[in-house]
Structure formats: C-alpha cells, structure tokens
Design a protein around this nucleic acid. Structure first.
Length: 552
RNA sequence: GCGGAUAUGAUCUAGUGGUUAUGAUAGUGGCUUCCCAAGCCACUUACUCGGGUUCAAAUCCCGGUAUCCGCACCA
C-alpha cells in the first residue's frame, strides 16, 4: 500500500487530534469533519491571525449573523434559482428523483418535462409536476405556520441585509468594511475531497464597501512596493502592487490591497510561498455580476492548485438585488462640498377639502397627487381610482415653490469581497508544513508550523518521572499557562518519545527539568526545528520563550 | 447519481464455514538517574449494519450504509 501525502496528513490529523471524520460510529458522512483539540486550537490561531489583519491593520468591523437564512434573502441574492435541480416525486413509492437521473440518455431534462415522458424507475408510474429542488440545505422556521429558510451558503448575505444599519454605524462614510467568520453549508453532490470540499465549512468573509468612483485604498501607498505572486492563466509573475495596478493587471488599488492582505495572512500562517499564487479568473469564468476576480490558490500534492480564497469585485450586484426585493433604502450618499439648494414646484394637497369631498378615497388621491411631477401638471387633473376617473378641482391643492437642500448624490456602493475557505487553508497548512525524515529506519514526522500557529507552544517535561523533577515541572507548566502560553505537560515514556509527540503536533519548544536543575536551577529548552538544546535559568525561561514566540 | 472495488482494535494488517480471531504500531500502568519514538513486565481496544443459507457465518448469498477509483455534477 502506498500512501500519498494526503493519506499521511489525514492519519496524523486523526491520530493527534486535528481532524476526525464526523459521526464515525454511525458510519460517517462524507463532507463533515470534527475538529479535534489540536485542530480547534489551530483553527482559532488562524482565525485570530485573520482578525489581526482585518480588524486591526485594516480597521473593519466584525458582525455575526444567523446561519439559518430566510428564503426571501436567498431568493433575492439569486441563490434559490441558481442552486437547483429539477426533481419529481412518485406518490406511490414516496420517493423523489432528480429528473436528470431517471430520463433516457437521448433527451434533455427540458424535453422530458415538456413531453411528459418521465416515469418512476421503481414502479413505472408516470411522473409529472417536475419542480426545482435547491442544493442548499433547507429548513423551516416555526411550527405549523412556517416560513421557508435555508442554511446559508455564504456568510456574505448577512452583511448585505444589514447594510443600511452598518452604514449608519460607520457614520455614513465610505469606504468601510464588515467582516464575518462562521459556518456555511452546501449540500454537495459528491464531496470526495476530504477537508477541501465540505458540506458544512468555515468561512471568513469581508465585504468592503466602496464608492464606485473611488476604489483607492488609504493604506495602499504604505504597502505598494510589496510584490504579489500572480498567475494570469498564462504567465506566473512576481510583481509589485503598484506596477500591477498601473499596468492594469489588477483593476484597482482596493483589489490589490486585499490581495496583499491575503498573501500576508497566508504566508504568516505558514503557507509555502512556492505553493502559493493568485490566479485571475478568465472572462468566461466570471460570475455575471463580478467585474474581476482573483483566487488565492494553494498547491496540494493530491488536489493540485486549490482555490482557498476568492477576492472578487462584486460591484453593486447584491445591494441592488436587496434594494429591489426588499424596497429598503440601501443607498450611500456622495456629499457635495457645499449642499446644493434646489428650487422646485410641488403639489400640496389640501386635506381639509379633499377629505370631506372624497371620503375614503382621499388617501389614495393624496398619494397620487404628491407623486405627480409638479412642473407638468395637466389641467384639469384626472386621477384614476379603482377604474374610476376622478377630476380633481383646483381648490383641492396648492402648487408651492419649495427650496430643498440636497447634500449629495445617492448611489449604491460597490463591494470588494475577500472570501476565505478556512478549512481549505487549514488543510493546506498541514500539508505545507508536514516534514518527514527517516530516523533509525523509522519514519519521523514533524509539523513545522510557525510558532504563532502552533496549537501547543511548549511541552513541559521532567526528564524522568521522579517526584522531585515532577514537582518542579508541574509548577513550571502552571506558570506558563498563567502567562497565557499553551502547554502540554507529559511525564510518560521516554524523553525521546515525548519530543516526538510534540514534533508531530508542531510544538516549537520543549522545556525539560533534569537532576541538574535541582542544583543549578536551570532547565533545558529544546528547539523543534534544530533539536538544539539550551540551558536557561528557570526564572528566565518564560521570558525567553515569550520572546521567541513573538519573533514571528 | 451511475459503474467498479473495498469494509477486521485508534492505525496498519493475518486469517479459515467449526474451540479463546493473528501480529505490529499507537495508548495506559509499572520498573529503569533515561535528552531525541530505547528496554523489560502487565493491560485496554475490532470482524460495517440488517436479513438469509447452515447444526454452525467475520468467512457464502441478498440488501442497506460508508469509503476509494472512474464518469457525471460542482462557489
């Protein structure tokens, strides 16, 4: 049996508590994984690195919205119509079938439905009422009288549906960005790529709202000399952000800036630069609403180049969709230097006349009058109410000239969306940092994770399990944890075995208490990457380790 | 979803229609003044599920489920 890197990684992940197949005791289910103790810590470290960039370096705001999402939201966003397959139900067998699965090869789904030639593969009865079924996980809200809903396929919609509130929170200034980390769900047909394609997955998304006339970024100048690894489907290049924007390879500063953020996060997290690139979507690949899209791809030995982050210019698509569907005001305002004063005519209904005259129809008449263009009023005014044409006498309204102050132009902001598949990044991190060698004819592996990512920072051991050493080691272990440093205390087995266990989960440092420590109050720090050892006074060990952890 | 293959402790694996189902690794406890998976002793954990054939099924048959491979599908 030959194991590829994926097999080795997944075995290590299971053995050492990174990833477990979910529900395994009941046979498991493809597309679901449990994060074990180490995986949970690693994921948290990655997410916090992400937050460091998106909340601190680029001062965005973070929100958290429901994973269960109302039908109407996803209808408006286009997900309801895009994620569907035609399905028929057999009432005899109480079964549902995908139309494309049960029709003859020589006809299309459309033809089969149009010609009514769909039959049940089990009982042979004729099936009709083909209806689309969505590939999103659906559910219902409430009992009895329910509302349709789905588990969200992306976190972004929660940001868009709150845009008007968030825009206000951001003091009505653009650009501003809103981020969300959380789970997304897709009922994949056949998820056979382990943690690369999951049915329930973690994503980190940012929606940065811009004035479409100004997609510059405040911090661009600060970082414009950074080089990005780009691939335009033909050539790979390493090119400065400034040059890429100047030459039009990347459309605008904002897009380039979030590519820089993405590259920095991934490389900081421990991605191998040789296995990293941004790939530009070809024109025929672009979603119809996207102007430009770059994927950050990480190379995996089994899966090839894996799309782990998508950075798309989604223009105004989503906000427009929600404005149309919900009738909510989701416009932003581009203020003039000086507010403009605009004089215009307006019809002002006189309700004291309209009311007695038209009774219950007065309300509708008022609305219609107000919505008329006061510059071009027909005479006499005729208003149609319930198929009845009503002449409105002059004494029912005034035409007033009013002066309005207009502060600026209303427009729908554009959005740039960096969207991270956390689980994919995490798997690639394991793969990129997996290192193996043969030691005494035995395979020896390490995870060479950056110390900042490592789930456990320090292993604390007594050299042998002697009460005197154990006492000191346990106390030292406690002191580490009091200083917010994650540790593993271990006094089982030989010292080499304990080092090996720590190497496997990527623990950068091990501290060992030995018999000499009893005399000289010094302990040994052992470095994961070099296996070199260093004697350090026990009082300084916390400080030393802290320094080394902060180095990168 | 279709076709094919597979399913034995945490992992890898042996096995035959018939007594207590291999072995290794890992794990746990103990011994060892032990710095890179050392040694010795002891211990824990398994035949994918359901039905059938049979005196007897982990083994043969049927079905379910899951996984893997190919095809199809796929932000």
């Amino acid at each position: 049996m030959t194991l590829d890197t994926y097999d080795k990684i997944m075995m290590l992940a299971k053995r050492r508590g990174f990833l477990y197949p979910s529900f395994e005791i009941y046979g498991g289910s493809a597309g679901f994984y449990d994060y074990g103790p180490m995986g949970t810590r690693l994921k948290e470290n990655l997410e916090n690195l992400w937050r460091k960039y998106y909340l601190l370096k680029d001062a965005n705001i973070e929100i958290s919205t429901p994973t269960i999402t109302l039908y109407d939201v996803l209808k408006a966003s286009g997900h309801v119509d895009e994620f569907t397959d035609l399905t028929v139900d057999c009432k005899q067998c109480q079964t549902s079938f995908k139309v494309e699965d049960i029709i003859d090869e020589n006809q299309t789904v459309e033809e089969a439905v149009a010609n009514d030639t769909v039959t049940c593969p089990d009982c042979g009865s004729k099936l009709s009422d083909a209806h689309p079924v969505n590939l999103m996980f659906s559910t219902e809200i409430g009992i009895g009288k329910t509302r349709d809903a789905f588990l969200r396929p992306e976190t972004a919609q929660g940001i868009f549906t709150g845009f008007h509130l968030l825009y206000r929170y951001a003091r009505e200034k653009l650009p501003f960005g809103v981020v969300q980390l959380g789970k997304g769900y897709r009922n994949e047909v056949s998820p056979r790529q382990g943690p690369i394609r999951m049915r329930e997955f973690s994503m980190a998304e940012a929606e940065i709202f811009f004035d479409p006339e100004n997609k510059s970024h405040e911090l661009f100048n600060e970082v414009k000399n950074h080089k990005l690894y780009l691939f335009d489907n033909v050539n790979e290049m390493k090119i400065s952000m400034e040059k890429a924007v100047d030459e039009g390879i990347i459309n605008n500063q904002a897009l380039a800036f979030y590519m820089y953020m993405t590259q920095s996060i991934l490389l900081d997290a421990g991605v191998d630069p040789k296995k990293f690139r941004f790939r530009k979507h070809a024109d025929d690949e672009l979603a119809h609403y996207a102007k430009e899209c770059w994927d950050a791809e990480l190379f995996s030995e089994r899966f090839g180049w894996v799309e782990c982050v998508g950075i798309a210019d989604r223009s105004a698509y989503d906000l427009n969709a929600h404005i149309t569907a919900s009738k909510t005001d989701m416009y932003a305002l581009r203020r003039y230097d000086e507010p403009k004063r605009i004089t215009k005519k307006q019809i002002v209904p006189k309700m004291n006349v309209l009311g007695p005259e038209f009774k219950q129809r007065a309300g509708i008449i008022k609305e219609k009058l107000e919505s008329m263009d006061a510059e071009n009023i027909p005479y006499p005014i005729t208003i149609k109410v319930n198929n009845e044409h009503i002449n409105i006498p002059d004494n029912c309204y005034d035409i007033e000239e009013i002066t309005e102050t207009v502060p600026g132009d209303k427009f729908v902001p554009h959005v740039i969306e960096p969207s991270y598949g956390i689980d994919r990044v995490l798997y690639c991190l394991l793969e990129h940092n997996y290192y193996e060698e043969t030691k005494n004819d035995e395979l020896y592996h390490k995870l060479l994770l950056p110390p900042s990512m490592a789930p456990v920072k320090v292993g604390v051991f007594p050299l042998i399990s002697d009460e005197k050493l154990i006492k000191i080691a346990k106390k030292l272990d406690k002191t580490f944890r009091e200083n917010d440093i994650f540790t593993t205390y271990d006094d089982g087995g030989s010292i080499g075995r304990r080092y090996a266990r720590m190497d496997e989960i990527g623990t950068p440092f091990c501290v060992t208490v030995d018999f000499e420590s009893l005399d000289d109050n010094e302990v040994t720090i052992r470095n994961r990457d070099t296996t070199e050892q260093q004697r350090v006074p026990i009082d300084e060990v916390i400080k030393q380790i802290k320094n080394q952890l902060e180095k990168k």
